[in-house]
Amino acid sequence: MEVGISFREKIAWVALGGIALAGALYFGNLATHDAPHSYFIGLFVAVMVAQAVITTVATIGVAALAPADARAPRDERDRMIGRLAAGQTYYPLLIGVMLSAVTIHFGNSLFGMLNLLLAVIMLAEALRFVFQIIAYRRGG
């Protein structure tokens, strides 16, 4: 039996798309442009602001299509899925952060380490939304 797509699952898809777009924009530039650090700091801020705006607009659009679903508070299944997804990403995030920090002892620059940390955090966030979507697809 098809359960249907809940509002919270749609938001998870929107958020996943936002993180993926932000990551692609920032790290794509990082990989292909040789520029001073100040350029990338400015780029990072711009990408984060753009991600926030796009995600907000998309969320408002999703809510406008199903206002009754959007107004409904998170129920126990939504909260459970949120907790499970956060728990499942905790150890990958922890390991990623520790490995990123260690790279500085192997010749990585501070700038390089910071970007690794950023990548790990963004990947962990993306993973959290992926786990939420999988849980919703399975029925919770």
């Binding site: 039996m1 359960v3 249907g4 797509i5 809940s6 509002f7 699952e9 679903d69 409904a72 129920d75 126990e76 299944r77 939504d78 919703y136 029925g139 919770g140």
Partner: peptide, 11 residues
């Protein structure tokens, strides 16, 4: 609960 949660329970 949301409609989707009720549907998931029924299923």
């Amino acid at each position: 609960m949301t409609r989707q949660t009720v549907a998931a329970i029924e299923a």
